[in-house]
Structure formats: C-alpha cells, structure tokens
C-alpha cells in the first residue's frame, strides 16, 4: 500500500543524541525520555530532526544538515500569539 504523501501524522526523530563512543551511553535516547537541558554556549548544538512547513510544502528538517553555515534557531510560544 502506498504511503500517503502528506499524511495526518509525520514522525520525526526529535532530539538526536550525540555520538559518544568512549563514554557510558547518554541518558538521552532517540526521541524519548529527553528532558535534560543540553544546550550550553561554547558547546555543540544538540541536533534534532523535526517536521516542518518549508516553501509551501511539508518536509522534515535536520539541523545538522546545515553544519558549516551560521544558524539561528528561534523558539516561540505559538502560531497566532500576539507578541
């Protein structure tokens, strides 16, 4: 059965744990049980993949695909909010 192109539900990986080959496994697992804040200035940006609305269409965006460029990410409380 063909998969619906833009179906009702689009899984994405969410936060993606950093590779840490020589350490105990991080408490972060792929897309689950992630509550620990990892973002620090001067430290690597936590990677993620999320569903997105881009150029009139839907696709998943992975942050690390933009490595090598300057990036700004802005969180905001919600569409249609006032400020």
């Amino acid at each position: 059965m063909a998969e619906a192109k833009d179906g009702c539900v689009k899984p994405s990986k969410g936060p993606i744990a950093l590779e840490a080959p020589n350490q105990e496994p991080l408490t972060v697992t792929l897309g689950k049980e992630v509550s620990k804040m990892l973002a620090r200035v001067g430290k690597p940006a936590p990677d993620f993949e999320l569903a997105a609305f881009v150029d009139g269409g839907f696709k998943n965006v992975r942050l690390s695909d933009y490595k090598g460029k300057w990036i700004v990410i802005c969180f905001y409380p919600g569409d249609f909010t006032f400020v």
Partner: peptide, 22 residues
C-alpha cells in the same frame, strides 16, 4: 527539542522565546 534547549515550559506545554546562534 525545546526540553533539550531548556526552553520548554511543561506547565503551559509550549516552547518559550528562546534564541540560539550556532
């Protein structure tokens, strides 16, 4: 993702205004 970046407000269920330069 907001949780990992420290901007997710669990009580409200939204990401607050956080901005990061990478």
């Amino acid at each position: 993702v907001g949780s990992v970046y420290g901007v997710y407000d669990e009580d409200a269920g939204v990401d607050i205004r956080g901005r990061f330069i990478i």
